[in-house]
Simulated scan of single mutants.
Amino acid sequence: MSRRARSAPPVTRAALTSALVGTAVIAVGAFWLSFHALTDLALRSGVPREQAWVWPLIVDGVIIVSTVAVFALRGHSRVITTYPWALLLGGVVVSVVANGAHATLTETQVPDVIAVAVATVPPIALVAATHLSALLLDRTNPGAGSLSFPWPRRRPAPAAAAAKVETTPDAIAPAAQRVAKPADQRPSGRSRAMASEEQMRAWLDEQLAAGVKPTGASFAKRFGGSASTGRRRLAELKGELVDA
Rank of each mutant, 00 (worst) to 15 (best):
A98C: 10
Q177M: 10
V212W: 04
G211S: 07
K181H: 00
H102R: 14
R49H: 13
Q199S: 13
R201E: 15
V116A: 14
G61L: 06
L132E: 02
W203R: 12
F223Y: 07
A8G: 05
L237Y: 00
T140C: 08
F223I: 08
R190C: 03
A160Q: 11
S133R: 03
D184E: 12
H131N: 05
D60M: 15
A24E: 09
A209H: 05
L87E: 09
P182Q: 09
G225W: 02
A193E: 07
T39V: 02
E240M: 09
V25I: 15
F71M: 12
L132W: 02
A159N: 07
S188P: 00
L20K: 09
K213H: 04
A14R: 09
L57E: 02
L204S: 05
A14D: 12
A157P: 09
A217R: 07
G189K: 01
V121Q: 08
D184T: 10
S133L: 13
V21F: 11
D184N: 03
S188W: 00
P10M: 04
A209V: 09
R186N: 06
G216A: 03
T168Y: 00
S148G: 04
M200R: 12
A128H: 06
I64W: 04
H131E: 02
P111W: 01
L234M: 06
A171Y: 01
A244C: 05
P214G: 11
A69M: 10
A163K: 01
A235I: 00
F219Q: 04
V165S: 03
A86N: 08
P123K: 04
G143T: 07
S133Y: 01
F31D: 09
A37M: 14
P142E: 06
A15Y: 00
S66Q: 01
V118A: 01
G230Y: 02
V179T: 13
R222V: 11
K164M: 15
V93E: 11
R155P: 13
V127A: 15
A37W: 14
L204W: 01
G29F: 06
N141M: 09
P156H: 00
V93P: 05
D243T: 08
G211T: 05
E240Q: 07
